[in-house]
Amino acid sequence: MTKRKNFKLEMNMEKEIGQDTVLILPDYDEHGCLNSMIYHTGGKIHIDSKPFDLIDTNLRFRGSSMRGAVEGSAAILGKLNKNPIIIDRDKGIILLPSQSALLDGCVWLSLQHIMECYSLEGNRTKVALSNGCSIILDGSKKSIQRRMEKAYELQFKMEAQKRIFENGKRVMENAYHLEKQAGGVNYEHLAGE
């Protein structure tokens, strides 16, 4: 019998991925351990946690997980490599990866903070951010823009689903009355009520 890995939720304000989070970078310390650097609109914070684990902690704090976010994204967009994930639907926090989320070098960008992409030599892209800063990523402008389009598609489809469920509530024209007879297994409609 295998033991389950215990998950200990350690969340604090420093680790929060919020509306002011611009991007999350992998950051190696002097011992070669992978950590994270969270860039916010007003500065940056070093976190002693891998980006993947940091995002997973944020999702678990909100009642989900990285696995759930990835599977949910794939269910809506289809199975894709480098799918965007929703951190908080109500606040519009969607992150898109610069490469596979399983790779240690993955940079996570907040969709709402991407302003423009510019092609650079050597198959690299400069991404201008909402706070006036920028980051240069490996990969073509087209590939970054494709991931942005998928993130907008995910956002749109999630909002559409929300509207369908909210507007789908309707008042029944005919009231119903149900009763399960003694010894019966199913509920039945009562006549004349």
Rank of each mutant, 00 (worst) to 15 (best):
M115G: 00
C133A: 13
F61I: 05
S130C: 11
S134K: 06
R60K: 11
Q145K: 10
A69T: 04
D88P: 06
N81C: 09
S140Y: 12
N81G: 09
L111G: 05
R146D: 14
K50S: 15
P84N: 13
I55P: 04
R147V: 01
G92E: 11
C106I: 01
A128L: 13
K79Y: 14
N58T: 09
I76G: 05
G132E: 05
L103M: 13
K79G: 02
G68H: 05
L120D: 08
I136P: 08
P51K: 13
E149K: 10
I76R: 12
G105Q: 11
D104H: 09
G63A: 09
I94N: 05
T125G: 12
K141N: 01
K141S: 00
R62A: 10
K126P: 02
L129A: 00
L80G: 04
A101K: 08
E149G: 07
E149C: 04
E121I: 03
A101Q: 09
V107C: 07
G68W: 00
Q145F: 00
M66A: 05
D138P: 01
G68E: 13
L54G: 12
L95P: 07
G139I: 01
Q99T: 03
D53A: 14
Q145M: 10
D90V: 11
V70D: 01
I144G: 05
N83S: 12
I86C: 15
V107Y: 07
L96I: 09
